[in-house]
Design a binder for these strands. Structure first.
Length: 208
DNA sequence: TGAATGATTTACT
DNA sequence: GTAAATCATTCAA
């Protein structure tokens, strides 16, 4: 195993048991690790978004909607909320806050650190490729995250966070939720300023 | 039961 | 810049 995953310890549950905006900001710079039979892959989180339902119209838990899909967000923090969209992509979230508060942080982009070869193989791209994990669907594919990871405990399972390094955090409005009216204008997207692994979006959303 | 749609990505023009 | 791919989830009937 690489030095990064061997020397760092798993982030504890109290990290997740805080308001979703706080976690979304603090998660920038942390390392996301995914172990599997195929090997270990890991990347530094450089972009994330907060979803603060039930008040947040952009959140799947808007209005307190409690279904099979959103159920994990109502449970304890530190678990994975994984969902499937557009008929072909998975997205990975961290459940935050306390029990009964259906909040989550969407991980939108990573800077690849460990297991680039495995990531590239899963993505069907050459190892040197620059688009391995610079998007929420892309990073799930690179980390092998899918339906089986729904609801898993990040304090125990194959997927977890470790301490990373400091990041200069900038913020903008969230991506792909224009249907959410006024909520779409909230600056609840956090990213590391200047990092080239941040997902490619319109220039206007990058600034601020 | 059926219809609409989406926290995206990719390949086009 | 636009559009296609593609299906689980959701809600209405």
């Amino acid at each position: 195993m690489s030095a990064i995953t061997a020397t760092s310890s798993r982030v504890v549950r109290s990290f997740y048991a805080r308001p979703v905006l706080t976690v979304a900001r603090d998660v920038i710079g942390k390392i996301l690790v995914a172990r599997s039979a195929e090997g270990v892959v890991a990347g530094r989180i450089v972009e994330a978004e907060a979803y603060r339902g039930p008040e947040d119209r952009a959140a799947h838990s808007y209005g307190g909607r409690r279904t099979a899909r959103t159920e994990v967000m109502f449970g304890p923090p530190g678990h994975a909320y994984v969902f499937f969209v557009y008929g072909m992509h998975y997205n990975f979230n961290l459940v935050t806050g306390s029990v009964g508060e259906p909040q989550a942080v969407l991980i939108r982009a990573l800077e690849p650190l460990v297991g680039l070869e495995l990531m590239a193989a899963r993505r069907g791209l050459p190892k040197e490729h620059s688009d391995l994990t610079n998007g929420p669907g892309k990073l799930c594919q690179a980390l092998g995250i899918g339906r089986a990871d729904y609801g898993v405990d990040l304090c125990k399972g194959r997927i977890f966070l470790t301490e990373g390094s400091r990041a200069v955090v900038a913020r903008s409005r969230r991506i792909g939720i224009d249907y959410a009216g006024a909520w779409a204008k909230k600056p609840w997207r956090f990213f590391e300023r200047g990092n080239r692994c941040v997902s490619k979006v319109s220039t206007r959303a990058q600034l601020r």
